[in-house]
């Protein structure tokens, strides 16, 4: 299992840069068969320029099904859950 602190990841970086790094971390862990857990404590926004370079890029490369059961969020706001679900629904 790989736990990633998103607030720390965003510190000092813009959203596209942070998304790129998250993509790299996710790819490495998922390749090894590790589940990825994103700790969202203190993070209030998931804008498209972050999602597109991270989760969106991963889905583009590997398909949405590859994330099923392998990606989870903890301490996430209800509104962010709605946005993540909406975001994922836009992929076939």
């Amino acid at each position: 299992m790989c736990k990633i602190d998103i607030k720390a990841l965003l510190e000092g970086r813009n959203y596209p840069e942070a998304g790129d790094i998250l993509f790299g971390l996710m790819s490495d862990s998922l390749k090894k068969g590790e589940k990825v857990i994103l700790n969202m404590e203190g993070v209030d926004s998931l804008p498209t320029m972050f999602l597109n370079t991270s989760i969106g890029q991963y889905i583009k490369d590997h398909g949405k099904d590859s994330l099923q059961g392998n990606l989870a969020f903890e301490k996430i706001t209800a509104q962010q859950v709605v946005r993540v679900k909406e975001y994922l629904s836009r992929f076939a």
Partner: peptide, 11 residues
């Protein structure tokens, strides 16, 4: 909505 934190959400 009021702010609400969810402990765990899985894809």
């Amino acid at each position: 909505e009021n702010e609400e934190i969810i402990d765990n959400f899985e894809i």
